[in-house]
Design a protein around this nucleic acid. Sequence first.
DNA 1: CTTGCCCCTGACACTAGTGTCAAGTTTTAC
DNA 2: GTAAAACTTGACACTAGTGTCAGGGGCAAG
Lengths: 115, 115
Amino acid sequence: MRIGELAAATGVSARSLRYYEQQGLISSERTPSGQRIYAESVVSRVTFLQRLFSAGLSSRTIRNLLPCIDTPSEESTAASLDTLVRERDRLVAHIDDLVYTRGRLEQLIEANLDS
Amino acid sequence: MRIGELAAATGVSARSLRYYEQQGLISSERTPSGQRIYAESVVSRVTFLQRLFSAGLSSRTIRNLLPCIDTPSEESTAASLDTLVRERDRLVAHIDDLVYTRGRLEQLIEANLDS
DNA sequence: CTTGCCCCTGACACTAGTGTCAAGTTTTAC
DNA sequence: GTAAAACTTGACACTAGTGTCAGGGGCAAG
């Protein structure tokens, strides 16, 4: 599939897809003339990348844990697994914080509802 | 209290405190020479601001809901309350998304642990 | 009075992902 | 074969909160 199709399939702009490739997060074949050709599996990869971005991971951090995604259960993923666990912990802490904030907002809504 | 003390008390840089004031999120008295003097109550305000920033609210959005914070239960907060509810909903959706992402990361950790 | 520390404003830099434009090439459709 | 649509690289802009530096003023302790 070409970049326009991938963009349509994932909702990610072609600009961003090229950026992801530049950051080493996705890969593509090239036609003889240089146009990118993506495997079908890249769709779910891009979706997952979006999810990680939305969770606040940087492209650098994501690149660090790619071995855990691409070749699970191999020795070469020691540092990758470390990054993965660290990001999970960071995410858990952030969720806890957001849940508390949600409570604060709901208190505020209640206090403003008795009008 | 002066800006250095407020910075120490909140862990927010003086630079950021001046920025918050510029954005209309906090206010201060001034000494005749122009130095900022903060009320004690600004400490908790700044702490809450940090919380909202960390939840992804922009300073513009925060300013919109300040009426709900400063003068709860008044008519003038109709638009403010609307913003508040909208942000609460956005936050709830985001938390749900992050919880799902946490599950994905934990699946990934598990898949990489059987080495 | 002077030393040292704190404060003031204004300006510029940085990050990091994305938008957008330009100029040129390739593919597709008629 | 020609026109439209899609692709290429490269470059520059933007956001928004923060860091940092410059050049100047304020104020307390010695």
